[in-house]
Amino acid sequence: MVDRRHLNTLYVSTEGAYVRKDGENAVVEVDGGERLRVPLHKLGSIAPFGRVTISTGLMAAAVESGIAITHFSDNGRFLARVEGPVSGNVLLRRDQFRVHESEAASANFAAVIIIAKASNQRAVLQRALRDHGDGLDQTARDALHSSVEHLADAARRCLKPRALDEVRGVEGEAARAYFGVFDHLICVKEPGLRFGARSRRPPLDAVNALLSFLYTLLAHDCRSALEGVGLDPAVGFLHRLRPGRPSLALDLMEELRPHLADRLALINRGEIGVSDFRLFENGAVLLNDDARKQVLVAFQERKREEIEHPFLKEKLAIGLLPHIQARLLAKAVRGDLDGYPPMIWK
């Protein structure tokens, strides 16, 4: 029996690509030539970006095999998802809905999520100070140290029982402290790669465009992981119900994105530059096609790195974290664990 938690996502972003089934394989063709062949049993999901065609034969095989196909626009906006019958445990989802309906229970889960998120954001800032703090002026160093303390305080405040709105308020304050110094994480001096403030729909600068694309990839993995353990990705605890929004997937990715998306290594290493972005008339800034492929490759390589899980005390690939955390979240929702153990980087 194949353990689908350990399988990969096939990202297809080449304009005009055609993905078909050949035997027990998914084959990617571009301009009539084969570019990639992947056995279906090694896939957990397929994620086409932009003008990519999926054959009906592959779509049928994917549905039958439990491989979800998630379509995105070329800039990473979610469009549609094709999947087979929901296989989740109805009793688990019932428990999930009960937690969601209880503000106190939701607040408990939300507080743990924010503790992990703030702690991981704090670790990102501390790493920046350690790695290139000597290259910053005193004002920047002071700002980073202040944000580090603010994030530590946010995590401490969530250790005490609080109403859900209070927890969300702490999260908002922590986000402002974190993104308020985010520009100091960027080592390059190129004016076109500065960060002013977080902008989402649409991203209004290059750094926001890169962050938004990486967050899209991570949200996809979190959604797939939640569905894999039988949880409903639309019913969250920190993020509340909103039509079309995978609220629980957004909850799950909060603790993961500081280390999986926010480290900006591609920019700091000079692998992504100003020429890798397109500016549109409405002010939107998006990655171009070649840069998007480069980010996809870097994201997949990052997922292959290994880390010791602080709760399981086991070494595992970073790409498995959404699946591991989804499984732990399901156990906590069912009551098999006293509480949800989030992923906090050491």
Rank of each mutant, 00 (worst) to 15 (best):
I113R: 09
V297D: 12
E166M: 08
A155F: 01
R122I: 09
L260I: 13
S102G: 06
A118R: 10
R77V: 13
G76H: 11
F311T: 08
R304S: 14
D276Y: 04
V167M: 12
M343L: 15
A61I: 02
V63T: 07
V90Q: 02
L238P: 08
P39R: 07
E255G: 06
A249K: 00
G84E: 05
I69G: 08
I324K: 11
L256S: 06
N108I: 13
A261D: 12
P48H: 15
S247D: 02
I113Y: 10
E171P: 03
D137A: 00
D153T: 09
G16E: 08
R51Q: 11
A206M: 02
G16R: 08
F179D: 00
V52Q: 08
A152T: 05
V297N: 11
A118K: 09
G44H: 10
G16P: 05
A62H: 00
P310H: 07
A330I: 06
F109D: 05
A298W: 13
V52K: 10
D153K: 13
F97S: 13
T56E: 13
H6V: 14
L193Y: 08
A143W: 01
A332D: 10
L286R: 11
Y340H: 08
A249W: 04
R257F: 03
D95I: 03
C222S: 14
L329I: 14
L328R: 15
V99P: 04
M59C: 15
P246W: 01
R302A: 14
T70A: 12
G76Q: 11
R94I: 10
R81H: 06
L129M: 09
A209M: 00
A128P: 03
H323V: 00
V124N: 10
S87R: 15
I324W: 07
I324V: 15
L185P: 01
A152Y: 07
P85F: 08
A155V: 01
L248E: 03
A152D: 14
G23D: 03
A154I: 13
L256C: 07
K21D: 04
L279H: 15
L204K: 15
F237G: 02
H309N: 05
R242N: 12
K315A: 07
N89H: 10
F299Q: 09
S224K: 09
P203F: 07
P243Q: 02
K315G: 06
Q138H: 04
P161C: 13
S87W: 11
D221M: 09
V181I: 00
F182K: 00
G169P: 00
P202H: 07
V207N: 00
D31F: 03
A177E: 03
L260W: 06
M1E: 13
S73V: 08
L144W: 04
L36R: 11
R223P: 02
E34M: 08
I113L: 15
L312G: 07
V148I: 11
R334C: 12
S199K: 02
P341W: 05
I113S: 12
R327I: 02
R240V: 05
